[in-house]
């Protein structure tokens, strides 16, 4: 039998949903384990400690996946260690590749985030005005330490060299299955690539006007999903539902659109685009029929950063400047 591929999974600042996509391979996971040897999978699945990872020889792991973004000093340390130990490193899913949902935290200051969570929220009882602290001496004798929250979030490739990127929040298990097969077969593109079928969500959407003879029109209506229900056969964008399908990678098979809900871009930007949100804003603005439609859009979605950069704020060219200047977001 050929030597197994030594494989690692590390959860950084994320929800472990990407790892669950691997578990969702279901019975095919058992087959994959004939070819993959899992040498590290923490904290979620294996009882491997960070010290075990540190003790491994450099480049002893063939293939490592990181899900989650870099949010605190522990994430930063562990991904650097994993990079040293691994031949190939994959940013696995929307958080590692683009920041993900929680990167919207950077639209506020760290102090604002803390104050809301530990002081101002309805059920919080904090009479002494204490906040979690990286180092605290309890009762004068117990020295307790916590990783410090970093001033801003980072994607994986902003802190270490990354060989491949995978989109999706999380990547669909069917796509993960294809990836695993490609990896086992040694069929990978040049380093630095996104692992994707290269198609946009629109290309895999069964409502695509180009394939259904619906005709293409400028958008003259703007609707939120609380306003109305769309016709299930007609392009969502053309019905006024702000769908990001044109600029999003379609490795999901257009899953949200299949249940009549607009795409929000978790799959990552189609090839050739670096700043997803900027391209998305430009795509929508340029498809609107007139100024009145644009005005409607601005009335209905008044926080555009949290719409266009829902999954990708950390890759925005503007984001660190915004984080530095932001006082509050209504």
């Amino acid at each position: 039998m050929a030597e197994k591929i030594k494989t690692a999974f590390l959860l950084a600042g994320g929800c472990a949903g990407c790892e669950m996509s691997v578990v969702d391979l279901s019975e095919h996971l058992v087959d994959a384990l004939d070819s993959l040897e899992i040498v590290f999978w923490a904290p979620t699945v294996l009882d491997a400690k960070y010290s075990d990872l540190e003790a491994m020889p450099d480049k002893s792991i063939d293939l490592a996946f990181v899900d989650g973004m870099i949010r605190n000093t522990e994430n930063l340390h562990t991904v650097k260690v994993l990079r040293d130990k691994s031949k190939v490193l994959v940013a696995f899913g929307a958080c590692a590749s683009m920041g993900g949902i929680a990167a919207m935290g950077d639209l506020h200051t760290k102090q604002e985030l803390f104050q809301e969570a530990y002081k101002d929220s309805f059920s919080t009882d904090n009479p002494d005005n204490v906040y979690p602290s990286p180092e605290y001496l309890l009762d004068g004798k117990y020295n307790l330490t916590l990783p410090a929250i970093l001033d801003h979030c980072s994607t994986l490739d902003q802190v270490v060299d990354v060989d491949y990127f995978v989109g999706g929040c999380p990547p669909n298990y069917a796509f993960v299955g294809k990836l695993v097969n490609a990896i086992i077969a040694g069929d990978l593109p040049p380093a630095g690539s996104w692992l994707t079928n290269g198609k946009a969500v629109c290309d895999v959407c069964k409502r695509n006007p180009a394939t259904t003879n619906q005709g293409r029109f400028l958008v003259d209506e703007v609707k939120r999903t609380c306003d109305d229900r769309p016709d299930p056969e007609i392009c969502l964008l053309q019905q006024g539902f702000m769908c990001f399908g044109p600029v999003t990678q379609g490795d999901c098979g257009g899953s949200c659109l299949n249940v009549n809900i607009p795409c929000r871009g978790c799959g990552g930007p189609i090839p050739g685009i670096k700043d997803f949100g900027a391209r998305c804003a430009s795509m929508l603005a340029s498809s609107m029929a007139d100024d009145a439609t644009t005005q409607k859009f601005m009335d209905k979605f008044n926080n555009m950063a949290k719409l266009f950069y829902r999954y990708s704020h950390t890759t925005s060219k503007l984001n660190h400047a915004i984080a530095g200047h932001k006082e509050d977001t209504p």
């Binding site: 600042g13 809301e116 916590l146």
Partner: peptide, 9 residues
């Protein structure tokens, strides 16, 4: 050991 701040964002 982690914190993300959903309540605010």
């Amino acid at each position: 050991v982690e914190f993300r701040g959903y309540e605010k964002f």
